[in-house]
Protein backbone atom coordinates (compact mmCIF):
# COMPACT_ATOMS: atom_id res chain seq x y z
CA UNK A 1 0.00 0.00 0.00
CA UNK A 2 1.08 3.53 -0.61
CA UNK A 3 1.78 4.83 2.82
CA UNK A 4 3.30 8.22 2.95
CA UNK A 5 3.88 11.24 0.81
CA UNK A 6 6.58 10.56 -1.69
CA UNK A 7 9.74 12.59 -1.70
CA UNK A 8 9.21 14.10 1.72
CA UNK A 9 12.12 12.35 3.32
CA UNK A 10 14.62 13.55 0.77
CA UNK A 11 15.46 16.90 2.22
CA UNK A 12 14.84 19.18 5.13
CA UNK A 13 14.89 22.27 2.96
CA UNK A 14 11.78 21.26 1.15
CA UNK A 15 10.75 22.83 -2.10
CA UNK A 16 7.32 21.34 -1.57
CA UNK A 17 4.90 23.64 0.19
CA UNK A 18 3.19 22.91 3.43
CA UNK A 19 -0.17 22.81 1.72
CA UNK A 20 1.01 20.19 -0.72
CA UNK A 21 2.39 18.01 2.05
CA UNK A 22 -0.78 18.40 4.03
CA UNK A 23 -2.91 17.52 1.01
CA UNK A 24 -0.85 14.40 0.35
CA UNK A 25 -1.27 13.22 3.91
CA UNK A 26 -4.95 13.90 3.80
CA UNK A 27 -5.37 12.00 0.56
CA UNK A 28 -3.54 9.01 1.95
CA UNK A 29 -5.71 9.06 5.05
CA UNK A 30 -8.86 9.32 2.99
CA UNK A 31 -8.05 5.98 1.34
CA UNK A 32 -8.85 4.21 4.57
CA UNK A 33 -12.05 4.34 6.52
CA UNK A 34 -11.22 2.24 9.52
CA UNK A 35 -8.88 3.24 12.27
CA UNK A 36 -6.78 0.14 12.32
CA UNK A 37 -5.74 0.91 8.73
CA UNK A 38 -5.27 4.60 9.49
CA UNK A 39 -2.97 3.77 12.36
CA UNK A 40 -1.12 1.50 9.97
CA UNK A 41 -0.71 4.54 7.68
CA UNK A 42 0.56 6.59 10.60
CA UNK A 43 2.99 3.85 11.59
CA UNK A 44 4.28 3.71 8.03
CA UNK A 45 4.67 7.51 7.98
CA UNK A 46 6.75 7.09 11.09
CA UNK A 47 8.99 4.55 9.42
CA UNK A 48 9.89 7.17 6.79
CA UNK A 49 10.87 9.76 9.33
CA UNK A 50 14.59 10.53 9.00
CA UNK A 51 16.42 8.98 11.95
CA UNK A 52 17.25 11.23 14.86
CA UNK A 53 20.77 11.18 16.20
CA UNK A 54 20.99 9.24 19.45
CA UNK A 55 22.93 12.07 21.11
CA UNK A 56 20.05 14.42 20.34
CA UNK A 57 17.68 12.36 22.50
CA UNK A 58 18.28 14.09 25.81
CA UNK A 59 16.23 15.22 28.77
CA UNK A 60 16.32 18.72 27.30
CA UNK A 61 14.98 17.65 23.93
CA UNK A 62 12.28 15.46 25.50
CA UNK A 63 8.82 16.90 25.03
CA UNK A 64 6.70 16.87 28.18
CA UNK A 65 3.13 15.64 28.22
CA UNK A 66 3.55 12.35 26.41
CA UNK A 67 2.84 8.88 27.79
CA UNK A 68 5.41 7.83 25.21
CA UNK A 69 8.73 9.60 24.87
CA UNK A 70 9.06 12.27 22.19
CA UNK A 71 12.26 14.14 21.45
CA UNK A 72 12.51 17.23 19.33
CA UNK A 73 15.51 19.29 18.25
CA UNK A 74 14.62 22.30 16.13
CA UNK A 75 16.63 25.07 14.58
CA UNK A 76 16.18 28.01 12.23
CA UNK A 77 18.27 28.03 9.08
CA UNK A 78 18.73 30.96 6.74
CA UNK A 79 18.10 30.28 3.10
CA UNK A 80 17.99 32.50 0.04
CA UNK A 81 14.25 32.78 0.40
CA UNK A 82 14.43 33.59 4.11
CA UNK A 83 14.62 31.70 7.41
CA UNK A 84 13.15 28.20 7.58
CA UNK A 85 12.62 25.94 10.56
CA UNK A 86 14.28 22.55 10.37
CA UNK A 87 13.89 19.89 12.97
CA UNK A 88 14.63 16.37 13.86
CA UNK A 89 12.33 14.34 16.09
CA UNK A 90 11.51 10.83 17.18
CA UNK A 91 9.37 8.80 19.54
CA UNK A 92 9.72 5.38 21.11
CA UNK A 93 6.11 4.53 20.26
CA UNK A 94 5.28 3.75 16.65
CA UNK A 95 1.96 5.58 16.40
CA UNK A 96 3.42 8.61 18.13
CA UNK A 97 6.35 8.50 15.71
CA UNK A 98 3.77 8.64 12.93
CA UNK A 99 2.28 11.78 14.43
CA UNK A 100 5.76 13.23 14.75
CA UNK A 101 6.26 12.42 11.07
CA UNK A 102 3.11 14.31 10.12
CA UNK A 103 4.43 17.38 11.92
CA UNK A 104 7.77 16.88 10.26
CA UNK A 105 6.17 16.68 6.81
CA UNK A 106 4.14 19.84 7.22
CA UNK A 107 6.58 21.89 9.28
CA UNK A 108 10.19 20.97 8.73
CA UNK A 109 11.95 23.00 6.06
CA UNK A 110 9.10 25.52 5.91
CA UNK A 111 9.46 29.30 6.28
CA UNK A 112 8.90 30.60 9.80
CA UNK A 113 5.94 32.75 8.71
CA UNK A 114 4.22 29.72 7.20
CA UNK A 115 4.72 27.77 10.38
CA UNK A 116 3.12 30.52 12.41
CA UNK A 117 0.09 30.82 10.17
CA UNK A 118 -0.56 27.14 9.38
CA UNK A 119 -3.58 25.95 11.37
CA UNK A 120 -2.25 22.59 12.51
CA UNK A 121 -5.15 21.98 14.91
CA UNK A 122 -7.63 22.31 12.10
CA UNK A 123 -5.52 20.03 9.92
CA UNK A 124 -5.25 17.30 12.56
CA UNK A 125 -8.95 17.66 13.21
CA UNK A 126 -9.66 17.14 9.52
CA UNK A 127 -7.67 13.92 9.66
CA UNK A 128 -9.85 12.85 12.56
CA UNK A 129 -6.81 12.65 14.80
CA UNK A 130 -8.03 15.08 17.41
CA UNK A 131 -11.10 13.02 18.09
CA UNK A 132 -9.21 9.73 18.05
CA UNK A 133 -6.11 10.47 20.02
CA UNK A 134 -5.99 9.89 23.72
CA UNK A 135 -5.56 12.98 25.86
CA UNK A 136 -2.00 11.92 26.56
CA UNK A 137 -1.00 11.87 22.94
CA UNK A 138 -2.85 15.06 22.14
CA UNK A 139 -1.03 16.87 24.93
CA UNK A 140 2.28 15.59 23.68
CA UNK A 141 1.47 16.57 20.13
CA UNK A 142 0.45 20.08 21.14
CA UNK A 143 3.56 20.44 23.29
CA UNK A 144 5.58 19.67 20.19
CA UNK A 145 3.64 22.14 18.07
CA UNK A 146 4.10 24.77 20.75
CA UNK A 147 7.85 24.23 20.77
CA UNK A 148 8.10 24.51 17.01
CA UNK A 149 5.86 27.56 16.86
CA UNK A 150 7.70 29.24 19.74
CA UNK A 151 10.96 28.78 17.92
CA UNK A 152 9.49 30.16 14.71
CA UNK A 153 7.96 33.08 16.63
CA UNK A 154 11.22 33.96 18.35
CA UNK A 155 12.96 34.05 15.00
CA UNK A 156 10.16 35.99 13.39
CA UNK A 157 10.36 38.64 16.12
CA UNK A 158 14.14 38.63 15.91
CA UNK A 159 13.95 39.24 12.17
CA UNK A 160 11.66 42.18 12.69
CA UNK A 161 13.93 43.73 15.27
CA UNK A 162 16.97 43.68 13.00
Amino acid sequence: MNTGPEGCTETHLSAVSQEEHAAEIEETFALFDNWEDRYQVLIDFGKKLPPMKLEDKTEISRVPGCQSNVWLVADVKDTESGPVVVFSADSDASITRGLVAILWYVFSGQPVEKILTFDIDEFLDRLGLIAHLSMNRRNGLFSMVLRIKALAASRSRGAQEV
Binding site: N34, W35, E36, Y39, I43, Q67, S68, D92, A93, S94, I95, T96, S134, N136, R137
Partner: peptide
Protein backbone atom coordinates in the same frame (compact mmCIF):
# COMPACT_ATOMS: atom_id res chain seq x y z
CA UNK B 1 9.20 -4.81 22.03
CA UNK B 2 6.02 -3.01 21.08
CA UNK B 3 5.34 0.17 23.01
CA UNK B 4 2.49 -0.37 25.44
CA UNK B 5 0.72 2.76 24.20
CA UNK B 6 0.72 1.45 20.62
CA UNK B 7 -0.64 -1.83 21.93
CA UNK B 8 -3.49 -0.14 23.76
CA UNK B 9 -4.34 2.17 20.86
CA UNK B 10 -4.46 -0.61 18.27
CA UNK B 11 -6.48 -2.93 20.51
CA UNK B 12 -8.91 -0.07 21.05
CA UNK B 13 -9.68 0.01 17.32
CA UNK B 14 -11.01 -3.53 17.83
CA UNK B 15 -13.12 -2.48 20.81
CA UNK B 16 -10.73 -4.05 23.31
CA UNK B 17 -10.03 -2.00 26.44
CA UNK B 18 -6.91 -2.82 28.41
CA UNK B 19 -4.69 -0.68 30.60
CA UNK B 20 -1.24 0.24 29.37
CA UNK B 21 1.55 1.89 31.27
Amino acid sequence: NIHALDLGTLLDTRGIAIRTG
